[in-house]
């Protein structure tokens, strides 16, 4: 009797969640309880991270310092050109009669949990509604695009990574602007680029950046590098695989991007 009742309840839950998405509100309320539990489960990792930063030898610190100095020099060298390039970009855009791309604001968030289920590529962040996080917001790490926010609660949010089997992102080849859609496969190592015609100019090593089509992701963030192109006459489309540039399984600090509405020329 109890078993029947339970199965009945469970069936209603599954159908309500999968078919009608009618439990999203309940879920975001319940997720408020989830944040502290994830925080607790994350404690061992935090202790390791703490000891990693606090228990280090002087020589290691000096070495790190040197490395960072070099990197800083490189980056500031490069950013000198950026001012000139931006000015040039603005001039060219004015020539083309399209409005300037606005810079995006970012918010640093920290990872407090990852989905324990290996087929679900999700992460929990320590920023929520209070910090202005919204569903659909894109996030990046220092290398490239990571994914998007799918659920927000007061103090935390849940993020879907670009490699999740249910995720797809519109991209374009940085070299020539060819558009495509990169879908997650459920494996951390690669994305599949679907429906690429046999004659399309796409090669191994091409950088795929977000195209901004679809209005979800901001334009121009690196997504993946094409790792495999197979042109098989027996197939309708070229088989293209790409490996994500973001450190999907290693990033601990990520940036949430606040995309401002962009007017693009039609």
């Amino acid at each position: 009797m109890r078993a029947l009742l339970s199965i009945f309840i469970v069936a209603i839950l599954i159908i309500a969640d999968l078919r009608f998405n009618s439990l999203d509100g309940t879920r975001s309320v319940l997720n408020n309880l989830a944040a502290p539990i994830y925080w607790l489960a994350d404690t061992p990792t935090r202790i390791f991270a703490w000891s990693d930063t606090n228990i280090r030898s002087r020589s290691e610190l000096l070495e790190d310092n040197d490395k960072l100095r070099t990197k800083n020099l490189l980056l500031s060298g490069r950013s000198q050109q950026i001012a000139a390039l931006m000015a040039e970009n603005t001039r060219l855009r004015a020539l083309l009669n399209s409005t300037a791309l606005l810079r995006n604001d970012v918010l640093v968030a920290e990872l407090i949990g990852v989905s324990p289920d290996p087929v679900r590529h999700q992460m929990i962040l320590n920023k929520g509604v209070v910090d202005g996080v919204y569903v659909g917001q894109a996030l990046i790490d220092e290398e490239g695009l990571l994914g998007q926010v799918v659920e927000v609660s007061e103090m935390s949010s849940r993020v879907l990574l670009i490699t999740d089997a249910t995720h797809a992102i519109p991209v374009q080849v940085n070299r020539n602007g060819v558009r495509a859609i990169a879908e997650g496969t459920g494996a951390l190592g690669f994305l599949e680029v679907h429906h690429v015609a046999a004659t399309t100019d796409i090669e191994e090593g091409d950088l795929l950046v977000s195209s901004g089509l679809g209005g979800r992701f901001p334009v121009g963030y690196p997504v993946a590098v094409v790792s495999k192109v197979v042109r098989d006459p027996g197939r309708a489309f070229t088989l293209v695989e790409a490996s994500p540039v973001a450190a999907l399984d290693r990033s601990r600090h990520v940036l949430l991007i606040f995309a401002e509405p962009q007017n693009r020329t039609p």
Binding site: R2, L13, N31, I37
Partner: peptide, 28 residues
């Protein structure tokens, strides 16, 4: 017993971000 499994399962579903009812069903 069964109801314990149900409640624990729903809790785990919420925490894992799984379909509500997935772990509830299996633990039941």
């Amino acid at each position: 017993g069964i109801f314990t499994g149900l409640i624990l399962g729903v809790t785990l579903d919420v925490l894992e971000g799984a379909t509500l009812g997935q772990n509830a069903f299996s633990l039941t």
